[in-house]
Design a protein around this nucleic acid. Structure first.
Length: 478
DNA sequence: GCAGCTGACTCGTCTTAGAG
DNA sequence: CTCTAAGACGAGTCAGCTGC
């Protein structure tokens, strides 16, 4: 192996001068590579082994000149709530590196990132704390799993690879949550009260192989569903391909019979867990059987997805129609096919729905003009904009309204009201709304009952007062 | 008459340009 | 840099139409 001029300059001439050489380099953008060290080590081995100074020099070079450090971590007891960095790493590198930093970023195998709080104890103990449990949950980490960390100095970003302790192979599923970057990233950061953050969107899971083009309904645009979801479990299901529809995209509709995990839309940190398993059968109707296509049955493994509020990709928003369970034979042979994301309506979030209903009942009981809003992520984080149902906006709020006063527990928050054309998309925003959300720790899924206490739209007032009641979801159930 | 497709429409969510 | 405001996007709904 040949060394270039620069590499030759980096190599120590002899033992005691190594340190001087090392200290004399590495300014500016100098990056001493692992390759260079390997070359050096190999060269010295040929020369007859290491001396103590050489080993010290190597060590110093590693900690002082490398831009990247790697370390393993085996998940042991209590790993769900915190992760301790190796003390040597902290002492040699991270203590100084992260002395001014309280938050780092974990970049998962999927490329997604998680923001995690650092906790320091003494000079050698450093832990990943708040936010770590989300990373654990979303990668389904288990005890004895092995994590390989790569840290690029100066970035506060740790890249993580995840290996299964059973066979030391990389966990396949650790990559799969790349499809829900947007929702998760923001969810993970809620504890930071992070401000506005653009949500990255990525395409749906591709289900090529299940669809063929028939050229029907040309010009009709296929709806690309967003992947605000994460694969949580695969299930064996049966597809019955009945007919061809759509499109210019090589696709066809199917009848789908599925075993489905019912799961509410989970928006909050630490809330990602299955709460209910339920066997459900869906039938999706389609049309226009082509001449050259026979009815055909396909059996497959479906990736069940709990998070999205959307029906099947390409279903164009049409509801899935329940069919009788007896229409599906349990004895059918099962053959793997490409994954198809099967998604469930958000309203299956039983708890959220119950809370909403409770708020509605309470509103009716009080008999004051009111409306109820179920809190969404965008309402209480990121952009802090709560859309008012269009009916309520038209009925109760004047187009000239500029201010909304929110009253609760004797305190008043002054929020901004945004009127949009015809009341559509009108909503509450501004510092007052943000403060209201934060001070009352409103969560996704909570229902807020807004009672109008001031004269309504007809008076064309510049401000409206709402008495607000919050109906909280039970976090443990989500 | 019924089933199911088509396309318009509604409305909630999210993005982004621009103002302060 | 933060916040506001406008509007793009897309999921869901529904009425009309067509074919069986």
């Amino acid at each position: 192996m040949k060394l270039n001029q620069r590499e030759l300059q980096l190599l120590p001439a002899s033992g005691s001068s190594h340190r001087a050489n090392a200290q004399g380099m590495g300014t500016g953008n100098t990056s001493f590579s692992r390759l260079q060290l390997e070359v050096f080590k190999g060269d010295r081995t040929k020369m007859g082994g290491k001396c103590e100074d050489c080993e010290k020099w190597e060590e110093e070079m590693y900690w002082s000149k490398f831009k990247v450090v790697h370390f393993f971590s085996v998940l042991t007891n209590n790993f769900r709530y915190q992760l301790k960095f190796p003390e040597k790493l902290v002492k040699k590198c991270l203590r100084n590196e992260l002395s001014e930093i309280s938050v780092v970023t974990l970049k998962g195998p999927s490329g997604r990132t998680w923001t995690v709080q650092l906790m320091k104890y003494g000079s050698e103990e450093l832990y990943l704390k708040k936010g770590w449990e989300v990373f654990v949950q979303e990668h389904n980490l288990k005890q004895n799993d092995v994590l390989l960390f790569k840290y690029n100095l100066g970035t506060s970003v740790f890249e993580v690879l995840i290996f299964d302790e059973a066979n030391f192979c990389e966990k396949e599923r650790s990559h799969s949550n790349s499809n829900n970057e947007g929702s998760h990233r923001s969810t993970n950061k809620e504890w930071l009260n992070e401000g506005r953050k653009r949500v990255e969107r990525e395409p749906w899971i591709d289900v090529k192989g299940c669809h063929k083009s028939k050229g029907l309904n040309e010009g009709r645009k296929r709806v690309e569903r967003e992947p605000s979801f994460e694969i949580i479990e695969t299930k064996t299901v049966r597809y019955k391909k009945k007919a061809m529809t759509i499109s210019d995209n090589d696709e066809e509709d199917e009848q789908v019979y599925g075993r489905v995990i019912v799961h509410p839309r989970l928006e909050r940190q630490s809330s990602f867990e299955i709460i209910e398993h339920k066997k459900v059968h869906y039938k999706k109707k389609a049309i226009a059987i082509s001449d050259d296509e026979e009815e055909e049955e396909v059996y497959g493994r479906v990736i069940v997805h709990p998070r999205s509020s959307n029906p099947l990709p390409g279903s164009k928003g049409k509801a899935l129609v329940p069919v009788k369970p007896e229409e599906v034979s349990e004895d059918d042979e099962v053959t793997p096919v490409n994954p198809l994301a099967l998604v469930l309506k958000r309203k299956s979030g039983k708890e959220e729905h119950e809370v909403f209903e409770q708020a509605v009942r309470e509103g009716k009981r009080r008999r004051a003009p009111h409306f109820v809003v179920s809190m969404k992520r965008s309402h209480i984080s990121a952009i802090y904009y709560m859309t008012i149902p269009v009916d309520a906006a038209r009925k109760h709020i004047s187009p000239g309204t500029k201010r909304i006063y929110l009253e609760m527990n004797g305190k008043t928050w002054k929020a901004k009201y945004v009127w949009k054309k015809e009341g559509v998309n009108s909503g509450i925003t501004g510092r007052g709304w943000t403060d209201f959300v934060q001070e009352n720790t409103i969560k996704v899924g909570d229902a807020c009952l807004f009672e109008i206490t001031s004269p309504s739209a007809t008076t064309l007032k510049k401000s409206v007062r709402f008495k607000v009641s919050i109906f909280e979801t039970d976090e443990d159930l989500l």
